[in-house]
């Protein structure tokens, strides 16, 4: 919108930020592929750490600093640990697991490939000439994030805390072992 009318830099002369973005993006995408294809369940969780950490670096490159650190804290720090706990508690095999993929993996590959081709085609066609201006003060610094979050988004933020409380209570109720109705 801002730079689409003006002449935009071509794809053949990338800036340093673009080169870094593409390299980190390749690492992220590769880690995501290994996450969904590896046959060792614990390795899948550990490759998920690489993919989520790569995404945090992408947020940093897009000047969204606060979201990058929230990503590291919540995703890498707690969600992956929760997933590892889940794998351990359901006695997932540590080593090579022969049936990690179900029988419909070729259908899944077809669906994912078709949607990837369609989405990439549409996205490239729509945003080929769009340029993000990353100069100026960081738009996602902790200062800016605190300002917009507690100035314009206070009510959704408080509602979200109620939702988190409900999820906490629900998780405790669901995972309690000795319920009276079972005896």
């Amino acid at each position: 919108m801002l730079a689409a009318t003006a002449g935009h830099p071509g794809f053949l002369s990338p800036t340093g930020v673009e080169i870094a973005f593409v390299l980190v993006g390749i690492v992220t995408l590769g880690a995501a592929f290994i996450t969904v294809t590896t046959r060792q369940l614990v390795h899948a969780a550990l490759w998920l750490v690489v993919a989520l950490g790569g995404l945090a670096v992408e947020y940093l490159l897009l000047t969204a600093e606060f979201i990058a650190w929230v990503q590291v804290l919540i995703y890498v720090g707690s969600i992956v640990v929760l997933l590892l706990f889940g794998l351990m508690l359901t006695r997932a095999p540590i080593g090579h697991s022969p049936d990690a993929d179900s029988g419909n993996r070729w259908i899944a590959l077809g669906v994912a490939g078709a949607s990837a081709i369609a989405l990439v085609w549409v996205v490239v066609d729509a945003f080929r000439t769009t340029w993000i201006d990353l100069d100026g003060p960081a738009q996602g610094s902790t200062d800016a994030t605190g300002a917009f979050l507690f100035r314009h988004w206070v009510l959704p933020f408080e509602a979200l805390s109620v939702l988190l409380l409900a999820a906490l209570v629900g998780a405790i109720v669901l995972s309690r072992k000795d319920r009276e109705d079972k005896s």
């Binding site: 996205v123 340029w131 990353l134």
Partner: peptide, 9 residues
């Protein structure tokens, strides 16, 4: 940065 890079990723 081109918007196409994060969108494609």
């Amino acid at each position: 940065m081109h918007l196409a890079y994060p969108a494609v990723l």
